[in-house]
Amino acid sequence: MNLFRFAGDILHLLSILVLLLKIHATKSCAGISLKTQELYLAVFITRYLDLFWNFHSLYNSVFKVVYIGTTSMIVWYMRRHRNVKLTYDRDHDTFRYLFLVAPCAVLSLLINARYNLFEILWTFSIYLEAVAILPQLVLLQRTKNVDNLTGNYVFLLGLYRAFYILNWVYRFATEPGYSAWLVWISGLIQTGLYLDFFYYYVQAWKQSKKLQLPS
C-alpha cells in the first residue's frame, strides 16, 4: 500500500459519494447514465466475488463492500425510487450493453492469467471497468450541458484512475518482480478515455464557467 493507491481509492469512493449525494439531495438523476452505473455494479460484483473466501486485508474488504453497497444504492435510486426514476434520461441513455459486455467476455476468455472461473470473471471485470464509463460520456456528449456534480463525478473518477497509474509506477520502481500487464494496459485505456473530458473540464474551470462539451 502506498499513498498513490490510497489516494486513488479515496477519490474513487468520493466520486461515488458525490453522485449518490447529488441524487439523494436533488431527488434527480438527470444527466446520469444508468447503463454506466449498472456496468460498474457488474464490475464490482464480478471482481469482488472472492470477498467470501479470500481475505487480503480489512481495508480491501471494507472498500469492496462499500463500493458494491453505494453503487447498488445509485442503481436502486435510478430504477426504483418513485421520484428519482422519473428524472432518468432514458431517451438519451441508449448505449447498448452488449457492445461492451460481449467483447470483454470474449477477451477475458482469450487473455487471462489463469484459466479458471473466478480468474476469468476477475479479468472480465478489469476489461469491463476500462470501458464502463462510455455510456456516461456519450450521454454527456448528447445532452451537452453538464451540471457541476455530474462533471465532478467524471472528473474524480478520472483522477482516481490517474492515481492508480502513479501507484503502478511506484510499485514497479519499489517492488522487485512486480508486474501486472493486463491491469496496466486496461488501466491506460481506461484513463485515456477521460482525457478528452478532462481537457474541457479544466478549460471550464480555468474560465470559471459552466462545463459545456463541444458538438
Binding site: 493507491r5 489463469r114 501507484n167
Partner: peptide, 10 residues
C-alpha cells in the same frame, strides 16, 4: 501457491 491468487488491488 495460494497467496498468488489473491488480487491485492481494488
Amino acid at each position: 501457491k495460494m497467496g498468488d491468487e489473491i488480487h491485492d488491488e481494488l
